[in-house]
């Protein structure tokens, strides 16, 4: 069924592999290929994580009886020792190429802040723009926020990311996983019609979105207390004053994986 695969053909199986769409013989061949191919593991891993986004969106509460059964079984089920050699599923092999993970000190996304680009600049520019235009008595409050912002920017693991849709609506983020905080600035969001506002949400794999506050113009917003399970940020349009939970679909959403969150 599988026939003979040239290397290039094998390589093109990365996407079906990530979707678990290979038949067993091809699956085996591809995993063999993975061991010899330097660029493949990183690519497969990226594709797999895309697939996991599809999975995550199907989450549904498990039946209570299932919990009882599983927790009961666990009390009497022995565990396997750590593997002597890697199992093909779900880890194909020890990773040699740079990983996308936040844990590795060699991860390509661990970019020093000095070399991060537009997003950081945008946040800083917005911050000082705001500072300059405020009256004296507002400055104390602004300074407190500025300290928080500086605290995030100065973190050794501060990283930036930005996302923008086709209409130019987006957000820019500088975040530090170690400080559990992010500085978020809206760009091109405009002002919603009527009395409505832009509200920023933290998306997590379990649990409801958490409001991080209202985004007004390009004033930076400091989001604190972010767990490493922070998956993404989303902006929705809500009635004046904001909502306890989002009531509309997001106008902008930005994943936090590249800035050290997402699990």
């Amino acid at each position: 069924m599988t026939g003979f695969f040239r290397r290039g053909d094998l390589h093109s199986l990365a996407a079906p592999y990530a979707l678990d769409a290979l038949e067993p013989p091809e699956h085996k061949r591809f995993e063999k290929h993975l061991k010899r191919c330097d660029s493949c593991p990183a690519e497969v891993r990226a594709l797999r994580e895309d697939a996991v986004r599809l999975a995550w969106s199907t989450a549904a509460p498990a039946p209570a009886a299932l919990r009882d059964r599983v927790l009961t079984a666990v009390r009497t089920t022995p565990q396997e020792p750590a593997p002597v050699r890697p199992e093909p599923l779900p880890r194909a092999r020890p990773e040699r190429s740079p990983s996308r993970g936040r844990r590795s000190p060699f991860a390509p996304f661990l970019i020093p802040l000095a070399s991060t680009t537009a997003a950081a600049a945008l946040v800083v520019a917005a911050l000082f723009g705001v500072q300059a235009s405020r009256a004296q008595d507002e400055l104390a409050q602004e300074r407190a926020q500025a300290r928080e912002i500086a605290h995030v920017l100065a973190a050794p693991d501060a990283r930036s990311t930005a996302g923008r849709d086709a209409e130019g609506q987006g957000i820019a983020v500088v975040a530090s996983a170690s400080r559990r905080a992010a500085v978020v600035t809206g760009s091109g969001l405009g002002t919603p019609a009527g009395e409505r506002v832009h509200q920023l949400w933290l998306m997590r794999p379990e649990g409801k979105p958490r409001s991080l506050g209202l985004l007004a113009g390009d004033t930076p917003l400091v989001a604190t207390g972010l767990g490493t399970n922070a998956i993404s940020l989303a902006v929705t349009i809500e009635p004046a004053g904001g909502s306890p939970q989002p009531t509309t679909a997001p106008v902008v959403q930005l994943a936090l994986k590249s800035v050290g969150f997402g699990e």
Binding site: Q79, A82, S99, G101
Partner: peptide, 15 residues
């Protein structure tokens, strides 16, 4: 539960 030891944080997120 049985095979938690196989999880390798270097290779991806737990989820």
């Amino acid at each position: 539960w049985r095979s938690a030891a196989r999880y390798d944080p270097g290779r991806g997120t737990a989820l």
